[in-house]
Deep mutational scan, measured.
Amino acid sequence: KVTYHVPNEEFARKLYKKAVDANLNVEIRVENGQFIIHIE
C-alpha cells in the first residue's frame, strides 16, 4: 500500500489514471489543499 501527497491536481489525475489502468485499487481525497492518493 502506497500513499502519495500531491500538491498538484494535474499530477494527481495522471497518477490516478495510471493506477486505474494497472487495475490497482485507488482512493483519492483532498486534505488541506493536497491530494492524498492511496494505492493498493
Rank of each mutant, 00 (worst) to 15 (best):
K1M: 07
K1D: 09
K1Q: 07
V2G: 09
T3K: 09
T3N: 06
Y4I: 15
Y4R: 11
H5S: 06
H5L: 12
H5R: 09
V6D: 10
V6I: 11
V6N: 03
P7Q: 13
N8C: 15
E9R: 02
E10M: 03
E10Y: 05
E10T: 03
F11T: 14
F11M: 14
F11D: 14
A12H: 03
A12N: 04
A12W: 13
R13T: 04
R13G: 03
K14Q: 11
K14M: 11
K14R: 10
K14P: 03
K14D: 12
L15F: 05
L15N: 03
Y16A: 12
Y16E: 06
K17C: 11
K17Q: 13
K18P: 02
K18R: 09
K18V: 09
A19Y: 12
A19N: 02
V20F: 08
V20Y: 06
V20Q: 10
V20I: 12
D21K: 09
D21P: 06
A22G: 07
A22E: 05
N23H: 14
N23A: 08
N23P: 01
L24T: 01
L24H: 02
N25E: 08
N25P: 04
N25Y: 12
N25W: 14
V26L: 02
V26I: 05
V26W: 02
V26C: 05
V26H: 00
V26P: 02
V26S: 01
V26Y: 01
E27P: 00
E27A: 05
E27K: 08
E27Q: 09
E27N: 06
I28G: 00
R29C: 11
R29P: 00
V30S: 05
V30Y: 14
E31K: 05
E31G: 04
E31T: 07
N32L: 05
N32D: 09
N32C: 14
G33L: 04
G33T: 02
Q34W: 14
Q34Y: 13
Q34V: 15
F35V: 09
F35P: 01
I36Y: 08
I37R: 00
I37N: 00
H38I: 15
H38M: 15
H38K: 10
H38S: 15
H38D: 13
I39S: 01
I39E: 01
E40R: 12
E40Q: 11
E40F: 14
E40K: 08
E40G: 09
